[in-house]
Amino acid sequence: MAIVGSLDFEKPIEEIEDKIAELSKLTQEREIDFSQEIKKLEVKAQEMKKEVFSNLTPWQKVLMARHTGRPSTMDYIRMIFKDFIELCGDRLFKEDKAIVGGIAELDDYKVFIIGHRKGKDTKSNLEYNFGMPHPEGYRKAIRLANLAEKFSKPIITFIDTPGAYPGVGAEERGQGEAIARTLQVFSKIQVPIIVVIIGEGGSGGALAIGIGNRILMLEHAVYSVISPEGCAAILWNDPSKTIEAAKNLSLTANDLVRLKVIDEIIKEPVGGAHRSPEEASCLVKDSIISCLKELQEIPISELALERYQKLRKIGKYLE
């Protein structure tokens, strides 16, 4: 049951799960009945999971959000949608694999999908640049959003990135402009947009595809103006303050509901989405479909205004 890249606070649970596996194996091999013991351990494991995962600290949430076993955009595409066809390229410079886009069906809905793409291992992470887009990734997102609008198809975005890539080529090709332009296009597109933060919502690189009529966020995902590491380095000048930075940044799904930045938290299976990806994907699917139903009721000409009115309210100041 041990999951690749398991986190410290998951270990006690995994120890019990290993024990259960061992006892089940003995039951089979030696035909000794351990069912009582197994049942007890299962109850214990379940209680422990509830205890641990309902009280995660902000930093533990960051670790959960970055968990390599956590379902990625590609996993959700595979589990939730059918007949996905990937669409590539920005028609300007190159194909950026850090952002995946395409068309698919979701029950009776025909939709566009745009999302950050992270890998599961070193090889795929290098291929997808760890989910950190270059300007061409955002320009592909713009192209697809315009196409979705042309054919009146809803857009679903999945957010999961450490941030936009900080590199020489990215700057030369206008990383700032690409993000700003994506925000501009997503603010005016006349189709429903549903944003789902599934893992790591890292700064402007996440926000770029984060303007939506509905913004949903998984229970253990995070969304922040800067990574806790970056924040600690800049404000404290001390990398050891990362955990403190995570706490200060208010980056958990609960924080974001309280701050009225997101609309809804999607509950994860006990122990996190990586422990039962299938169950997690069902919950994500249900939430997306109920949003699609709601948004169908809004005339298409009012969707952009609805998004603007939502954004317009965000901010806290003294008058």
Partner: peptide, 26 residues
């Protein structure tokens, strides 16, 4: 850049200002 001490709210000022600009542009 964004003011870190206002967390995610400062990040969303980016989309708020750009969305307002788009109406001016339109």
């Amino acid at each position: 850049g964004a003011r870190m001490q206002e967390g995610i709210i400062s990040l969303f000022q980016m989309s708020k200002t750009v969305a307002a600009l788009e109406l001016h542009n339109k």
